[in-house]
């Protein structure tokens, strides 16, 4: 999966989408790609998985050849306005930018186009071979993916409507954009994944996502021994059986193993990255 320029990783909260994003970034970096990893949520876990401390809006090199940034809407907006209005010193008009931000916050699609737009501008840059996004959870992802299309429906003219066209085209192009949905073999993550896949299928804003099922336990075929070992085997088998029910409903794209006994988010990301090597 090293050919796409943009990889968007989403999933229900708590399924490990930040860990998977970090793992994919580490894998691509090992192959010598110049990476930009983008954390979208406040308090997002991506920085923890890189072990870097809090990230800022300006991309920072966190590994050789790999940069990471935290998306800040107000800064993205300011940057956009200074570029569009060719006013390099727009920071001085901070009050106007803040007012614009307050208005944009309430407008559908405008607030999302500012952040997804920033990401798509970065994809256009020659600076990066791949931009990886630890995106908002599946419950909110639709409004981001739909933003370029929504904008063209809301406003017929103006600069944004022209830009929105190439943005929508980039998202929908399977050669450029890959969407990944991380999930677990549990009830709520499974139903939310089904809903997300159905919506994407119907809307066509991106190509059918790759589904990565995280924390899957290996089935074991062994007679339950006596004592404590037996209790462990019994719990393991029961969990495997429960996961099996939900795995039946999930696409068989990729599974990642449960990470037993790891202590830090950086360890988790490194191990997952080994497991994702060679992902098609």
């Amino acid at each position: 999966m090293l050919d796409e320029r943009l990889v968007i990783v989403s999933g229900k909260g708590g399924v490990g989408k930040s860990a998977v994003t970090a793992a994919l970034a580490l894998g691509a970096q090992r192959h010598g790609l110049r990476i930009l990893a983008v954390e979208m949520e406040t308090g997002g876990g991506l920085s923890a998985h890189f072990g870097t401390g809090p990230l800022g809006f300006a991309p920072r090199e966190v590994r050789p050849g790999m940069h990471a940034m935290h998306m800040v809407r107000s800064e993205a907006l300011l940057e956009y306005l200074s570029l569009q209005l060719r006013l390099p010193g727009l920071g001085r008009f901070g009050a106007i930018a803040r007012a614009f931000d307050a208005l944009a916050t309430a407008a559908p699609a405008v607030r999302e186009i500012v952040t997804i737009g920033k990401i798509l501008w970065e994809v256009r840059e020659d600076r990066w071979d791949m931009v990886l996004v630890d995106a908002p959870p599946t419950g909110q992802i639709a409004s981001y993916l739909r933003a370029p299309t929504s904008i063209t429906e809301l406003v017929a003219t103006g600069r944004i409507s022209h830009q929105a066209e190439w943005m929508a085209a980039t998202l929908a192009d399977p050669a450029l954009t890959r969407m990944i949905v991380v999930t677990l073999a549990e009830e709520l993550p499974t139903t939310e994944t089904e809903d997300t896949l159905a919506w994407i299928d119907a809307s066509g804003v991106v190509t059918t996502p790759t589904v990565i099922t995280n924390r899957v336990l290996d089935p074991i075929r062994v007679k339950t021994p006596a004592g404590v070992a037996g209790e462990m085997v019994t719990l393991h088998k029961a969990l495997v059986a429960e996961q099996g029910e939900w795995l039946k409903r999930l696409p068989p794209d990729v599974t990642l193993p449960y990470m037993f006994g790891l202590f830090t988010p950086t360890e988790v990301a490194a191990h997952l990255s080994d497991r994702l090597e060679g992902l098609e």
């Binding site: 306005l81 569009q84 209005l85 106007i96 007012a99 614009f100 307050a102 208005l103 944009a104 309430a106 407008a107 405008v110 809301l154 406003v155 017929a156 003219t157 103006g158 600069r159 944004i160 409507s161």
Partner: peptide
């Protein structure tokens, strides 16, 4: 007093009265 310069700027970019409608909401 306040909104017109912002809205004029917004119009350049958004090309319609979108933000004006938003501001009424606010």
């Amino acid at each position: 007093r306040a909104a017109r310069p912002v809205l004029r700027m917004a119009d350049t970019i958004l090309g319609s009265g979108l933000l004006e409608r938003v501001s009424e909401f606010l």
